[in-house]
Design a protein around this nucleic acid. Structure first.
Length: 339
DNA sequence: GGGTGTCAAGCATCG
DNA sequence: CGATGCTTGACACCC
């Protein structure tokens, strides 16, 4: 997401409101915003972005019969071309409902459908297997070994184009880095390392060592350099809750643990690009990043805004009203869509 | 136009 | 055993 822009790429609607027209309008709006976010990111030197899961409402749901893959093929391709042209990198993170190791076959089937949906967007963008789908190992169901074995069995059934994008993240309560390493040994699935989760749940591996163990599971030709999630504890809140805004001292300490390891860092921090700007500023200071892009002016937020996560423009664009002319135009262009 | 209950989906934990 | 948090809010209805 991006708090600085007056658009969202996660616009959706209720299942009860489903219509093909609504899908077409919403996807058009979401893709237009995604493009704007990527342009903003390029201007500000933010070269790694996690695309939201909600580009296509009900993208893996049986109700959605709209042929969005063909209708929006040019838009997806244009976005992918932009990403490749500027050597940016993207990932996606299907949410907690994707559980490949569930004992319930219906849940597994829906999970696979969701991975296929999200992977197909990356395919339509023409991105190679270094663009990843990041998921968790899943549930424990009282028996760790069986749970991991079931994940492996399901993973083997995935379509190859999905399989090659799947990476597994160490989580903060159930499956640690060690479990992910076991999974990697059996399947070759790269580990998306989360520093904060590792702090919450580990088997004694020091941070610097943990980073290197995870990095070694990424095959450079196939996977690119390691992706990782960075966050830290929100003070006075439940253990595992992400901070609202980056803590510069902790980030500097983390960079020391990272040393000369080359990674793509995704911040899981509430205020989004505000913290990303701060992190990039620190890394430029340390010459870990190239100088800022030409014409770059650091965004200015007051400490209060950053604290409250309120870095959005004061006036958001009013919600789009029902636009009869846009619908009419869409019908003209694609009369088959409304059967 | 602002406030708020609810939203497709899973799991573990809390009280 | 129902509510809660995860998480990235946003929709839709009420007033």
């Amino acid at each position: 997401m991006n708090n600085s822009l007056d658009c969202t790429s996660a616009s959706t609607f209720r299942l009860a409101s489903y219509s093909d027209e609504r899908v077409e309008q919403t996807v058009a709006s979401n893709l237009a915003c995604l493009k704007r976010i990527l342009e903003y990111n390029l201007e500000h030197g933010l070269m790694f972005f996690r695309i939201g899961s909600d580009i296509v409402p009900f993208g893996s749901h049986a109700v959605n019969t709209f042929p969005w893959q063909t209708r929006f093929a040019p838009e997806f391709k244009a976005i992918g071309d932009y990403i490749k042209e500027h050597k940016m990198r993207v990932s996606m993170h299907p949410d907690q409902f994707v559980v490949l190791n569930s004992p319930n076959p219906d849940i597994v089937q829906r999970s696979v459908a969701e991975l296929v949906y999200q992977g197909s967007m990356l395919d339509l963008m023409g991105l190679d297997s270094t663009a990843k789908l990041q998921i968790h190992l899943g549930g424990l169901y009282g028996d760790r070994d069986t749970a991991i074995a079931r994940f492996i069995a399901t993973w083997h059934t995935l379509p190859p184009e999905v399989q090659i994008r799947v990476v597994v993240e160490n989580d903060d309560r159930l499956f640690s880095l060690r479990d992910c390493l076991e999974l990697n040994a059996a399947t070759g699935i790269p580990i998306l390392f989360d520093n904060f989760h590792h702090e919450c749940l580990n088997n004694g591996e020091p941070m610097a060592e943990a980073l290197r163990l995870a990095a070694a599971t990424w095959q450079p030709e196939r996977d690119g350099i390691m992706m990782m999630d960075y966050s830290s504890q929100s003070h006075g809140e439940r253990r595992g809750k992400h901070v609202a805004s980056i803590e510069e001292d902790l980030f500097r300490d983390f960079l020391k643990e990272l040393g000369d390891l080359d990674v793509d860092i995704m911040l899981e921090i509430k205020d989004k690009e505000a913290s990303a700007h701060q992190a990039c500023g620190i890394m430029r200071e340390l010459t870990l990043l190239p100088p800022a892009p030409a014409g770059y002016e650091p965004p200015v937020f007051t400490p209060k805004q950053i604290l409250e996560g309120d870095t959005a423009p004061k006036t958001r664009k009013p919600r789009a009203k029902k636009d009869k002319s846009a619908t009419a135009q869409a019908e003209q262009l694609n009369p088959e869509a409304h059967n």
